[in-house]
């Protein structure tokens, strides 16, 4: 299929990331090399402290490697300055967080609309896209509610809508179901699976959730900052 011929959306080459914790040097990622093909529903698994969040941060261009090269959407991230990286994220990367992280003073509608403001989309188009996105996550009726008036599942739906509304090439989700009960988690997973299938957006998850793993096209298992296993449909 065509997607298989396209270049990888993420390419990490000999990437290391070390942190200074007092006098101690913590190696979160150690000489990691991997490629993630586009249009997949990929999952990064690993125990707490295995380095999977660090990996997601590097892929999401909100952290920089101590060594090695990160290339996202064919862009060498190291070549961009701070503002350019911010603009790059605004255009290409959507985030979904474990704690939902909606802006509390903005309504569901305004939270979803915010990323479109960042890319400077004109008003009418912005409104159409925002409403369509809320419709797609089943929250059209709750559009004017503030986050504190929404349930956990509804909040995460808003977060998904917010991540996807700008039609990014890449969506990163760090433990998106961890704060949800399993039924809600399941509905969130199926929602994400559906929108991923519709949009062919590349989804990358970090999770412990076995439910998520069962949906994955591809699984990267991480331990102690190194790739332990790569399972998935062969490319």
């Amino acid at each position: 299929m065509q997607l298989e011929a396209m270049p990888p959306v993420v390419r990490l080459t000999h990437v290391s990331r070390t942190y200074q914790a007092g006098a101690l040097e913590v190696r979160a990622l150690d000489d990691l090399t991997l490629e993630i093909p586009p249009g997949r529903f990929s999952v990064v698994i690993g125990a707490s402290g295995s380095g999977k969040t660090t990996l997601l941060n590097l892929i999401g261009c909100i952290d920089a490697p101590s060594a090695g090269a990160v290339e996202v959407c064919q862009q060498k991230v190291a070549e961009l300055d701070d503002d350019a990286v911010a603009d790059f994220r605004a255009r290409n990367i959507g985030f979904i967080f474990q704690t939902f992280s909606l802006i509390p003073v903005l309504s569901a509608y305004e939270n979803v609309e915010y990323p479109l403001l960042l890319v400077g989309m004109p008003g009418p188009e912005r409104r159409r896209r925002t409403l369509a996105m809320l419709e797609a996550v089943g929250l059209a009726a709750q559009a004017q509610r503030r986050p504190n008036e929404l349930s956990g599942g509804q909040k995460q739906r808003v977060a998904i809508a917010r991540a996807l509304v700008k039609q990014p090439q890449l969506v990163l989700a760090d433990e998106p179901t961890a704060n949800l009960d399993s039924a809600t988690g399941a509905s969130i997973i199926s929602l994400m699976r559906r929108v991923q299938a519709d949009s062919h957006t590349t989804f990358i998850f970090a999770t412990h959730d076995p439910q998520l793993m069962s949906h994955a096209d591809e699984i990267f298992a991480i331990r102690d900052g190194a790739l332990l296993e790569h399972r998935g449909s062969a490319s």
Partner: peptide, 11 residues
């Protein structure tokens, strides 16, 4: 942090 991740510039 969320805003910055979404692509809001420092300024």
């Amino acid at each position: 942090g969320t805003s910055r991740a979404m692509g809001v510039r420092r300024s």
